[in-house]
Design a protein around this nucleic acid. Structure first.
Lengths: 193, 193, 193, 193
DNA sequence: CATGAATGAGGCTTCATTCAT
DNA sequence: GATGAATGAAGCCTCATTCAT
């Protein structure tokens, strides 16, 4: 019984992974459903047994990334006390994640183009969370005063662009030294020292 | 003869402006050549008298944005002395530019998806320039030591995300106060005070 | 053994009834085998244990309608003596039948489109029977002379169109008064008074 | 100028005629757009320059038949005085029309299946007209009293079935003799003599 | 007997590009 | 130069049918 269900889940997973790679490498519009099916090693029609449409699987991947990313970062920073440590650990986790799942991350970068609602939703969701953390840190006096929303977007911008640069242009994680520079920039910006 | 040329240039310009708007609003893949021609008020076939292909006009728009943006920012900061002032003026100019040309800016955001080479080329070009400025400032002791390339990408990330947030999510320029927060973040991050 | 057979016949019947409804409501081409199976409450593949193909079940339904209709009308008119009474009873039975089995009747209306041979076969079969009855009545002097085949088709046309009108447009049987008018038309046409 | 427009109209006409034949011969669902284009001698995409969709051209053909048929019959009967003559001329015109445009007529027979609204609309439209004529004749005492709507449907039924029989089963117009029988049936039914 | 996952042919539609006027 | 009719490749999706369990 469990077996039966697993057979299907496997197929679904294969298709998801194939789509992840292709969307990540060639973008949504340059990837055809047929390619996805072929890469997944299933028949054309099989795709539509598991996903309503090409849009559908795309949305699922964005949702999936969102969960993964939030979970991954949360896991790394939840046990930490100081904001400084949290940012360090959070950025490190982010870079590692993007490096490990470059396709998945590229998908979300494209999401605004594919589906505006989903794109905005993703960034806003992340930003709100971040903002909350910063507000708390501000109250505790751990970071400088300022508009927490703006600061959240500043930090997201740094993470985004460094991730982008290293992963997509250089295809590697930041070196220790690069990471140092980035963190210094951020922590001075945030904390002042 | 001059007249004729001008007439043509006008047509070319009309098509470019139409494409700018449409690509910016609906994205590259959701805009058809016919729509561009219609919005430009020219015949369908006429498009191909001025541009080799849909890709072609897209690349031209990215190049155009690149020139505009660099020129705009350069104009604002070239006469300034301190790095601090330059960043302030540069960021302000950038936000204003994005607000004035939202379509153009959105085009470049999409460029990676449309054509990877052009997308990367754009960011790298900007980054190199930025990096040079930062290296000079570092030598002069105006900013803290660190990997200048990383710092350049950090700053670009901030500019990008704040621009993105304000222009596409809020459809406005940052308020004075928001701008203050952003600049404080950057300048502490860069200079340390 | 008998039990088993019965079990099967039940399933077969369930599928037939589901197909009857769906074909009748949405037409042959807008009904999928999967829908039939679901409505019948059986597995997808099970359909093909009982019917060779979608066409197959369709043909069976047309044949079934043909038997039902002929049997129903025959039962009503066989014991009657005069042609006049027979027509009255026959038309009444026809209208009642169509009203009770609208789906089944709609199926036959569509049959020409689905399968020309089956469509023609159905009408010709009915017409031949009708014609024989009319020929006998003509010999007995009950009805006016004329090409019996033509008269048969005339009467079928009336039955068809009134049935169509009442059942599909008004979704009811003809009222007593409407029925009167129709019968008067027919009987004058046929008998002359 | 007129010429230019005509070039297009010709193509449109070619496509319409091709669709008419194919829909008439094989039905809506068994005709593909590609077949239509090939039969019309134009490229595949060309079809969509002239018609929004397969449904679109179908509706147009039904509308077209409706106009043609009404015009044809109206032309034949408008100058006549007695109802008797009108029916005779009307039925004759109808049979001739169906014989000349068998495909077009078959299309309308199928219309209920393709698009219920269009199908009903067509029959109701025709019936209303007919009914009006009959009401006038009733007032003048030309025909027997009775529910005019029912009578209209009776007559339409006769026309329909005879047309169907002769054109689709026998592929010819009714012979003089057959026509006589039909008219006798109708006129007795209607007028009583 | 029963199931439903898998298949792929086939249909509709879009759209970048060409070409004759 | 300018036009827009014509083209057909390519994409998305449906669904009748098969087959392994």
């Amino acid at each position: 019984m469990d077996r039966l269900k697993k057979g299907s889940d496997r197929t679904r997973e294969k298709i998801l992974r194939a789509a992840e790679q292709l969307f990540g490498q060639k973008g949504f519009y340059n990837t055809s459903v047929m390619e996805i099916a072929q890469k997944a090693g299933v028949g054309y029609g099989t795709f539509y047994l598991y996903f309503k449409s090409k849009d559908d699987i795309y949305k699922e991947l964005v949702r999936y990334l969102n969960h993964m990313l939030r979970y991954t970062i949360h896991k790394e920073i939840s046990r930490l006390e100081s904001r400084k440590e949290m940012e360090k650990a959070g950025f490190a986790a982010f870079f590692k994640f993007v490096h490990r799942h470059p396709h998945l991350y590229r998908i979300v970068l494209e999401s605004d183009e594919v589906n505006k609602r989903i794109g905005k939703w993703y960034y806003k969701k992340i930003a709100e969370r971040y903002q909350q953390g910063l507000e708390m840190a501000m109250k505790k006096g751990e970071i400088r005063e300022g508009d927490p929303k703006m600061i959240a977007y500043c930090l997201m911008g740094v993470a985004h662009m460094i991730g982008n640069y290293c992963v997509f242009y250089e295809e590697r994680e930041p070196t220790e030294k690069e990471f140092e520079t980035v963190m210094q920039f951020i922590l001075y910006g945030l904390v002042g020292h």
